[in-house]
Each structure stands twice: as C-alpha cells, then as structure tokens.
Simulated scan of single mutants.
Amino acid sequence: MDPDTNKPNGQAAQALEKIVRVRQARRNKFYLREERITLSHGSGGKATHNLIEGIFAPAFANPLLDRMDDAATFTTGAGTQRLAFTTDTYVVSPLFFPGGDIGKLAVHGTINDLAMAGAEPLYLSAGFILEEGFPIADLRNIVASMAAAAREAGVMIVTGDTKVVQRGKADGLFINTSGIGLVRAPGTLGQDQLQPGDQVLLSGPIGDHGIAIMLAREALDIENDIQSDSAPLHTLVASILEAAKQNVHCLKDPTRGGVATALNEMAIASEIAIVLEEGAIAVRPQVRGACEILGLDPLTIANEGKLVAVVAPAAAEAVLQAMRAHPLGREAAIIGSVQAEPRSMVFVHTDIGGKRVLDMLVGDPLPRIC
C-alpha cells in the first residue's frame, strides 16, 4: 500500500499521474495577477483559487495536499489505521448572528471538513487571537458556545493557544480550529473520484448561512426570519456511508463560494462535467427573495450545515432515503448528474428550458461570512 494515497502502488502511480495532469489544468485556469491581497482572495471562489495555485500549492506541493480536499487523509503505523486531518480559521462578522456565533461555527466547520473525508471526528484544537479591549463577557459566551457544540457533537477540544494583539490590530476575535478524525469510509473519497453516470445529491435548501450573516451585518430593512444553518454533519455522513457502502465517490460541504464553487472544484479535479436541474435545488423563499433584492445567486452563497454527495447511480435512491430519514437531510434531493464531456464544466438546466454555464464565485459579494 502507498502511505500517501492508501492505494496499491500501481494504482497510486496512476493517481499521482492524474493529480499532476489536473494540477497543470488548474494552473491554466487560475492566474494570480494582483500585486496585493484583496477581500476576494478570501471568498473561496476564483480569487482564492488563484491565490492557492499561485502561492501556496507550488511551495507546499505533496501528494496529500495536491488533492485539495477538505481534509488530508493518511495511514499510520502499519497502514491499518486511516486518519483525517484538517484546519480552518474563522473571521466571521458579526461574531453573533441569527442561528449561531463564531464559536459554534468554528466547531461545526472543522467537524464537517473531517466528515467530508468520511471520518468520525475525534479531537479538536482551538486557537484564539484576541484584540485588546475585547469584552470578557462576549469571550465567555463564545467559549461556552464552543464547548456546548463540541459536547453535543461528541468531540473534545484537547489543546489550544491564545494570543492578544494591540487595539486596532484585529477585529475583536479570530478563531482557528484544527481537527483529527478516524476515517470510516470503506473506499477513497475525494473531488477527483467522480465518474460519468454518478448522481449528485444535496442535503437541503441552500444560502441560509450567507444571507443570515449579510442581513445581520448590514442591518438591511428586509423582513425575514433567516437563520444560519450551522450544524455538525458527521452523523448524516455516517448514514450516507451505511446506505451506500463503497458507492460514495465524493462528499463536500459547500461553504465559501457555495454549491457553484464546490461543484466546479469537483469538475476540475475529476476532469468531468456536472449537469444540474435548477428546479431540484431547494432555496427557501426568504433566501431567494433576499438574493433577488441584493442581486446575488443562491448557488454562490455559503452554507454551514449542508453537504453535496456524489454517488454511483446504483446507490442514489438508497442514499437519498437515508438522507431524508436524518434530521439534517429531510429536504434532500437528487439535483444533477455527472457526464464525461465537456471536461471541467458545470451546467444548469434552467426552469425555463434553457441551459447555462455555472462558474465558481467571482469576486466577494459577502466577505467574512465564516
């Protein structure tokens, strides 16, 4: 077995060859032209990918990183134990918002990145950057929220760090969380694993989190009851894996950049095309209305409690029923399929009978949403 890819050596060589080919394709697609960092570089969309491909990926290149999945997976010891490892940093503004806060978001986000690797989350770290003058009462509430979220999800925060910077050198509080988990998925999951014929499933309505943050931050005069969908998805993933056995090819939570960016990442990595049915993609009326007023596409809006599952066609119905039987997947639907050509493209069949190209997020209409 190859320690980096968890595949027999012959298959590992083929996998690495594909990774090299896909990385070359990505370099042709993404260009870092800016001379200074902009807010768009944190959007999760094209500018973020330009930054990653232009700076980080070449410097840190290795077989684990080059797959560009939500978490790295690897074997330990004699190769019998598979682990997943991930990290994320949270800079959301405001710190408290309908449906959650930065602490709850940090715990859920890292749990979900581990879950997308087919892993059972076990342990988290928590790093805090505090600005001088930050209210102790707010910190106490955020830490209590983190503790409750971890306890409810069955994970432990086992290590951490705290730094304080001068007033004006940060925006109140930033949190970094890392996590490690035990991989339960029987096969290899990843955005480079999609195959023609696969079915694309979505666990529920999209756009709730990003719009909740936007309305809370800007105090827009729009009547709504939109709340963040922040939630830990590992138990939903466990249900999916049980129903599909070895027929799950990719799991991804569409956070920054939304469903559009997540699917484009899969299409590029797997060198396939994805075709969506617009009418199958659920958007709450309040979210759709806010997006229309603000000129936003729900498919590019961040989510924190939804996932996209790409599964073999034979398993699609069983996975759909398993998702709908779970509290976090009651509104799940099959929203599209995978086809061979044209490579690295995502399309949407619209409700009016047309067909449009769905690109990943360009720019950043909603900065600092996670």
Rank of each mutant, 00 (worst) to 15 (best):
313 P>W: 06
241 L>D: 01
328 L>M: 06
208 D>K: 11
220 L>M: 09
345 M>T: 13
204 G>E: 03
48 T>V: 05
63 P>F: 09
308 V>Y: 00
55 I>D: 07
165 V>S: 00
117 A>E: 01
181 G>I: 04
80 T>K: 12
113 D>I: 04
367 P>Q: 07
345 M>Q: 09
319 V>F: 07
71 A>W: 01
170 A>S: 13
116 M>S: 09
56 F>M: 12
370 C>T: 06
15 A>D: 14
361 L>V: 07
214 M>V: 07
202 L>Y: 00
270 S>T: 07
118 G>W: 00
58 P>H: 12
346 V>H: 05
114 L>T: 03
158 V>K: 10
31 Y>Q: 08
12 A>I: 14
243 A>M: 05
337 S>L: 13
18 K>I: 07
43 S>P: 08
241 L>M: 07
249 H>N: 14
79 G>E: 10
111 I>V: 15
334 I>D: 02
70 D>P: 04
76 T>F: 13
120 E>I: 05
290 A>G: 01
368 R>V: 03
313 P>Y: 07
290 A>N: 02
137 A>F: 08
34 E>F: 09
150 A>F: 05
239 S>W: 02
335 I>D: 00
10 G>V: 11
149 A>D: 05
262 A>T: 08
192 D>Y: 06
327 P>G: 04
219 A>T: 15
38 T>N: 12
114 L>D: 02
239 S>M: 09
322 A>G: 12
101 D>I: 02
171 D>E: 08
185 A>G: 07
329 G>I: 00
129 I>R: 05
211 I>V: 14
222 I>V: 13
260 A>I: 06
239 S>C: 11
298 P>A: 14
126 A>D: 03
45 G>E: 01
193 Q>H: 04
3 P>V: 15
31 Y>S: 11
125 S>H: 05
6 N>K: 10
25 A>F: 06
190 G>E: 08
38 T>L: 15
132 E>Q: 15
281 I>P: 01
348 V>L: 15
273 A>R: 04
219 A>Y: 14
204 G>Y: 00
243 A>V: 06
284 R>I: 01
61 A>S: 15
104 K>G: 09
108 H>L: 09
300 T>A: 12
28 N>V: 02
40 S>V: 04
134 F>V: 15
116 M>W: 00
110 T>N: 14
362 V>H: 04
124 L>P: 04
176 N>A: 14
304 E>Q: 10
114 L>M: 10
201 L>D: 01
58 P>C: 13
340 A>D: 15
311 V>S: 01
206 I>N: 00
7 K>A: 14
370 C>Q: 05
328 L>C: 00
172 G>L: 15
95 L>F: 07
